[in-house]
Design a protein around this nucleic acid. Structure first.
Lengths: 206, 206
DNA sequence: AGAATCCATTGACCTGAATCAATAAATACT
DNA sequence: AGTATTTATTGATTCAGGTCAATGGATTCT
């Protein structure tokens, strides 16, 4: 059983320098491990998100669905934490879906479990602050990307920064993460490979 | 002198139930009051934001400038706190400008002052967490608005939710907050008032 | 393996907003 | 008050991406 908590334990020890075995044991009691199958939907619009989850293995996606059109806000991969944090924190209904894209194992802590930790486990309050701050920074960067970069720039960036993710996820989901339609992404790809082949020809002709 | 701290004191007491006079006195020592004139620029791209500020009075704006084009991310009004939180937290250079739109008085706490508070003043850690969480929720809502609503919907919303702000700020800044050009906002306004007059005529003809 | 479903590409066309430009209105400045 | 500057409106044009539709490849399922 300790097995399934190994990765999440490493994760927490890394960002919680003062964490010791006693406090970990206390914290671990609040964790629940669950397995999901590809295609499972774990949160729907209207539901309040009640967990923060660590991904042992698998792949997860959050997205809005607005008149038939999906808008992906995030992909989450193994060894990281995710939540619908806005819904979780504000205790208000989610506006998003959260789906399992690949068979996954999640380690959940629920809202009450986390409040218990804040109230009873030393320094967990600070970890909570640091996590919230980290998530703020990430969201802020995502925001800047959507405001400042063109879809093509965003595509080239994700290709470079998360090539593995692009391979694991259908292209239409990547498109919706970039804020465009599948057709538009297909055209951007065509444009890029045209440019690449022109440059190659140029180099070849010298 | 205590005068200038009155509003910010009320503000902190409201979100920090366990705050007492002794701890407040300790905290207040870390605060610095500053006046600014309309047009002042208090943070430029490349600079690291080193303060979180409470606005006694005045109006402040944050915006990106990308090839001559302004993109407003936020307006901040009296009795609220602001910061370039992404830069402040990550200690990395800002990508944004922060300008004073109306003569303002700010009550600043700097990065070290805040760390001092976290380390020495009871429950300040929790307040820091709650503030970060609140800011996350706000940013998340702003994000959803930009992804899910049309510029016209966003305009109607800001008209309804912050009519005072729309009056105090030049229209081209509102446009850049909505993610469009001044021309586009002007056309949206024309469209709306056309619809309004059609509805009026309709009602009148009965 | 074969059928069915899902996914990516391509073409034709449409649309909303950007851009460029000119003018008018409003504010600020002396 | 009168000039200068800033801001808002309107028109003409352009363009990136959306929409609709058809086709062909890939995956998945039994």
């Amino acid at each position: 059983m300790g097995d399934k908590y190994e990765k999440v334990k490493t994760f927490y020890f890394s960002l919680w320098p003062s964490l010791n075995e006693e406090n970990w044991a206390n914290f671990e009691q609040k964790l629940i491990v669950k397995q999901y199958k590809k295609g499972d939907c774990i949160l729907k619009p209207g539901e309040v998100c009640n967990t923060v989850s660590f991904i042992n293995y698998g792949l997860v996606r959050s997205y809005y669905l607005v008149d038939g059109r999906e808008i992906t806000t995030n992909f989450f991969v193994e060894d990281s934490c995710f939540s619908n944090y806005q819904s979780f924190l504000s205790r208000t209904p989610s506006l998003m879906y959260t789906d399992i894209l690949e068979d996954s194992e999640l380690v959940d802590i629920d809202y009450n479990g986390l409040q218990y930790a804040y109230d009873n486990i030393p320094d967990s309050e600070r970890v909570g602050r640091l996590v919230a701050e980290q998530l703020y920074i990430i969201l802020s960067n995502r925001n800047a990307s959507l405001l400042l970069e063109t879809p093509e720039q965003r595509y080239l960036k994700i290709l470079q920064e998360k090539p593995d993710l692009v391979r694991r996820v259908p292209q239409y989901m990547v498109a919706s993460y970039l804020g465009i339609t599948p057709e538009a992404l297909s055209r951007i790809r065509a444009r890029i490979s045209k440019r690449v082949s022109e440059v190659s020809a140029e180099l070849f002709s010298r």
